[in-house]
Amino acid sequence: MRGIAFDVAHMLAGSLVLVSFIQLYQDRLMALINVFAAHALVLAASVAWQAFVQDAPHLYLTAVIALVFKAIVIPAALHRIIVKLGIHREIETVVGVGPTMLLGIGLVALSMVVMLRVTADADPLAREDLAFALSVILLGLLMMVTRRNAVSQVIGFMSLENGLVLAATGAKGMPLVVEISVAFSVLIAFIVIGIFLFRIRERFDTVDMQALDRFRGERR
C-alpha cells in the first residue's frame, strides 16, 4: 500500500507539472482553456488520491470543488467569454516557445533543488508533492509573465492557484476551511477579472495588454 500510494501520488503530481508545460506552449486561447481544464482535472484526481491515502474525507470535497469549478465551470465560462469577445482564434506570443520551455525546465529544476534541500527530514510523499507544487506555481507565474493577453494571464493565475492547492493537500492536516476559502477567493478573483476583461474590452476594443500600455503612453 505504502509503495503504490507514493507512486500514484507521485505520478499525479508529475502529470500536473507536465500539463503545466503543455499549457506553456499553447498559443491559441481555445486550446489553452482546454489544457487548463485538463490541468484542473489532474489536480482533482491528485487531491482525491491524497484524500484516499491520507484517509481525510474532507479532501474529497476539495477534489469536487476543483473538478466542478476549475475543470467545468470556469473553462466553460472562459469559452463563452472568448467567443463573445471574438478572440478565440487569436494567436499570441511574447516570448518564443523554445525559450519559455527552457525557462520552465530551469524553474522545475530550481524548485526541486530548493524543496529537496529544505525538507530533508520531511515525509517523502509530502516532500515530492511540495517540490512539484512549487514547480506548478512557478510555471503559472512564468505563464503570467510571458503572455500578454488578459485571458491567458487569468489562466496562468489559476494554474498557479492549482499549485497552491496541490501543496496544501500534500501536507497532512490542512484544515478544510483554508481550502474552501482559497477556492472561493479564486472564484471571486475570476469573476472580478472577468468583469474587468469586459470593461477593458469596452474601452479599448481589445484585451491585449499592449493596448493598455500604449494607451498609457509607454514607450516600447
Binding site: V94, L141, M144, V145, M209, L212, R216, E218
Partner: peptide, 9 residues
C-alpha cells in the same frame, strides 16, 4: 509607472 507585466516580471 511600469506596466502590469513588468511588475509581474
Amino acid at each position: 509607472f511600469l506596466t502590469i507585466r513588468s511588475y509581474l516580471s
